[in-house]
């Protein structure tokens, strides 16, 4: 008899292959590298810069980029190369501070709204909706105009206070969804306290979802700061940021000194773009399965 036709019965199945992704998810490596370069540059360059960014070298006003002034000088003769690195510090700091404020307010309100009874939730969300439809910079400008002369802290607070609504809304949506999910019910049945549920079930599940929002908030805050400083409503000229740097550039343009407008702007735009790329890398909602259409 053919030995291959002997009854062998059940033999252990070969172990299922560990699902290893062949193609790694799109990781924004270049964007991360560039952002790191800009941020590290802003943090560590300033002490080693040869020129004082606040020194008014009127003799060299509006000099085009050359060996001495790498990025040229502005209408007041300040060295743009030093200013860009110094300005980045303040811009990034403002962005970071205001994001922290927005995040704290948004997460607090969003979680409260998500866990609140329906009427309170409705009220809070109505408020958030109205807040959302207010054009972003308008309340910030009014508030800052009312507060008077701006400092980094006051500007961050103003921007932070006007940016919580989207975060609150996203957190609330997540919390509402999670709250109704079976595993939270299961934990409640087991006797998990609200704090336990918040810590073990809600936070780990909604934090990754709003990480994207936080990154985007940072981007908006940096952009808003520069816009406001540009309009002369934000940081004063002597407090160097990318925005206040650019607020003089309108005049430089007409005198043909394009570099004063273009170079700091390129830094600003590049930072914003890198942050956006990083954010999209974190986003999970934007990834779709194969289409059926």
């Amino acid at each position: 008899m053919d030995p291959r036709f002997t009854l062998t019965g059940i033999r252990p199945a070969p172990p299922p292959p560990t699902p290893s992704r062949q193609r790694a998810a799109r990781r924004p490596v270049p964007a991360a590298a560039m952002l790191a370069a800009i941020v590290l540059g802003c943090l560590f360059f300033p002490p080693f810069l040869p020129k004082d960014p606040s020194y008014l070298d009127l003799y060299h006003a509006n000099t085009a980029p050359n060996a001495e002034f790498l990025f040229g000088t502005d209408a007041m003769g300040r060295d743009l190369f030093s200013m860009v690195w110094y300005g980045g510090r303040i811009s990034l700091l403002t962005g970071f501070l205001s994001t922290a404020i927005s995040a704290a307010a948004g997460i607090l309100l969003g979680t409260a709204s998500g866990l609140a009874p329906r009427w309170l939730d409705g009220l809070l969300m109505r408020l958030t909706e109205i807040f959302l439809s207010i054009p972003g910079l308008l309340p910030a400008i009014l508030l800052q105009a009312a507060l008077g002369k701006a400092s980094v802290l006051s500007l961050s607070t103003v921007l932070g206070l006007t940016g919580w609504a989207e975060i609150a809304k996203a957190v609330r949506t997540e919390v509402r969804q999670l709250r109704g999910s079976a595993f939270v019910t299961a934990s409640r049945c087991m006797g998990g306290s609200p704090f336990h549920i918040l810590r073990r079930h809600l936070l780990p599940n909604f934090l990754p979802a709003i990480l994207f929002m936080l990154v985007m908030r940072f981007r908006s805050a940096v952009a808003s700061e520069s816009t406001m400083s540009f309009l002369g409503l934000g940081l004063p000229l002597e407090l160097l940021s990318w925005g206040s740097l650019l607020s003089l550039s309108e005049r430089s343009l007409l005198s043909g000194a394009w570099w004063a407008a273009v170079i700091p702007g390129v830094f600003l735009a590049a930072t914003l773009l890198c942050v956006t790329e990083l954010g999209s890398g974190l986003q999970t909602a934007g990834q779709y399965g194969p289409s059926g259409l």
Partner: peptide
């Protein structure tokens, strides 16, 4: 085969 009590050698 690996769930089959009547699996033959050749099934594998």
């Amino acid at each position: 085969a690996c769930r089959n009590e009547y699996a033959l050698q050749i099934d594998y």
